Simulated assay, not measured.
Amino acid sequence: MPQRNILKNHTAGPAFLLGFTDHPGLPGVCFTIFLLVYVTVVIGNGLIVLVTVAELSLHSPVYFFLRNLSFLEISYASATLPKMLVCFLMGDVWISFFGCAAQLYFLVLLGSSECLLLAAVAYDRYVAICDPLRNSLVMNGGFCELVVGSWMAAIPIQVGKTYQVFSLPFCASHHLHHFSCDVPPLLELACADTFWSRVTLHAVILLFAVLPFSIIVASYVRIIGTVLKNSSPGRHKAFSTCTSHLMVLTLFYGSATVLYFKHRPADTDKYLALFYTVLTPMLNPVISMRNREVRIALRKLLWKK
Rank of each mutant, 00 (worst) to 15 (best):
E114H: 06
H23L: 13
V49Y: 01
V138T: 09
L85E: 06
A273M: 09
I296E: 12
L249V: 11
L186K: 01
N68K: 07
C87V: 14
A209G: 00
I287D: 04
S78F: 00
K229D: 10
S219Y: 00
E55N: 08
G91N: 01
L274K: 02
H175N: 08
R222L: 15
P132V: 08
L17M: 11
L117I: 08
P27F: 11
Y123T: 09
I205G: 02
N45E: 08
V49D: 10
I216V: 09
L301W: 10
G160W: 13
D193T: 07
I216F: 00
L168P: 06
T280G: 13
K270S: 01
Y76S: 05
I74V: 12
I157E: 13
P233T: 07
F20Y: 11
V258L: 12
V148E: 04
A209R: 02
R222M: 10
G13D: 00
F143L: 03
G149N: 00
R134H: 05
V127T: 14
M289S: 12
E114K: 15
P265E: 07
F98I: 11
G225V: 12
Y163T: 10
C242W: 04
H236C: 00
S240Q: 03
L283A: 11
L301D: 09
I155L: 02
A192Y: 08
T280M: 09
L168Y: 03
A190V: 11
V53S: 09
C191L: 05
V62S: 11
C115I: 10
D131Y: 03
P185N: 00
F261A: 04
M84S: 07
L283I: 10
T11C: 04
V258P: 05
P82I: 05
I129R: 03
A203Y: 07
I224M: 09
S214W: 02
T243G: 08
S255G: 10
A120T: 06
D193K: 06
V147M: 08
G13S: 05
W303I: 15
T268H: 01
V51W: 12
H59P: 05
A54E: 05
I216H: 07
G13P: 14
G25Q: 14
S112T: 12
S240H: 08
L85P: 10
R299T: 15
D267V: 14
Y271P: 08
I224Q: 11
F34P: 06
V29S: 09
N230G: 02
V39Y: 05
A190R: 06
L26C: 08
V39I: 13
D182N: 12
S78C: 07
A190E: 01
L187K: 01
G19Y: 03
G44Y: 03
